[in-house]
């Protein structure tokens, strides 16, 4: 699902990622960990093509991101689901509309968008809050809405950047259970987090970044 070959990312004189190589197979559940500033978010931004690597190759969901024309990025992103620490919900739309809007934006009919949004909100157990606005629901519920939105396009790969960063441990575990269920259904999941307790509790393969480099001792498998 993800193949990363000697990827480096520089911002001027600052090197955010240095010679990163790894592979994540389809259906895996992998944590990306490291201290703040290690490069986790930078790597995720490369994976969903918000930026291009300075050097190296990235193959995600069968697409070479370095050579992908910009006009194909929207279609590529429909294969992904993205979840963020700050939820990125639209404040003046209801919970339901936050999810349904994605369907409309990628070309589903109105009826289809409504149906999928209802199903996904039920899946993440927020259907009772569907007509409320994001500010009216808890942080844990907002993150579940965000996950439902990420699943609207039935993505093959779910990328989550510190999804439990703003949540208490109990809510964080709830979110991890949802990710586990998503993974069980066949979606590859990559979660970036610095929460060691969370990683220890879930017990999955871990990629560890330190100052922009992959700690090879902690990597279970790499591209040779």
């Amino acid at each position: 699902m993800i193949r990363c070959f000697h990827v480096t990312k520089r911002y001027g004189a600052i090197t955010a990622l240095t010679d990163i190589s790894f592979q994540i197979d389809e259906g895996e559940f992998v944590f990306l960990t490291g201290q703040s500033g290690a490069g986790k978010t930078t790597l995720l931004r490369l994976l969903y093509r918000a930026e291009l690597p300075t050097s190296g190759q990235l193959i995600v969901a069968g697409r070479n991101l370095a050579t992908m024309p910009r006009r194909q990025v929207p279609r590529f992103r429909r294969r992904l689901g993205l979840v963020f620490q700050d939820f990125k919900l639209i404040e003046d739309r209801t919970v339901f509309d936050n999810v349904a809007l994605v369907g409309l934006a990628v070309g589903f009919s109105f009826t289809e968008s409504q149906r999928r949004a209802s199903e996904l909100l039920r899946l993440v157990d927020v259907d009772g809050r569907a007509q409320l606005f994001p500010a009216q629901v808890s942080g844990g519920e907002q993150q579940r809405v965000s996950i439902a939105r990420a699943l609207m396009t039935a993505p093959k790969l779910l990328l989550a950047d510190e999804p439990t960063g703003n949540l208490d441990p109990e809510r964080a575990n709830e979110i991890m259970r949802i990710f586990h269920a998503i993974n069980q259904s066949g979606t590859t999941v990559l979660v970036a987090t610095h929460d060691a307790d969370l990683i220890g509790t879930v017990g999955r393969r871990t990629l560890t970044l330190e100052a922009g480099r992959l700690n090879t001792l902690a990597v279970a498998s790499q591209v040779s």
């Binding site: 590529f76 992103r77 990125k88 934006a105 990628v106 990420a150 396009t153």
Partner: peptide
């Protein structure tokens, strides 16, 4: 931003 991230 959200629309671009979800593939619009």
């Amino acid at each position: 931003i959200v629309l671009r991230l979800v593939g619009a």
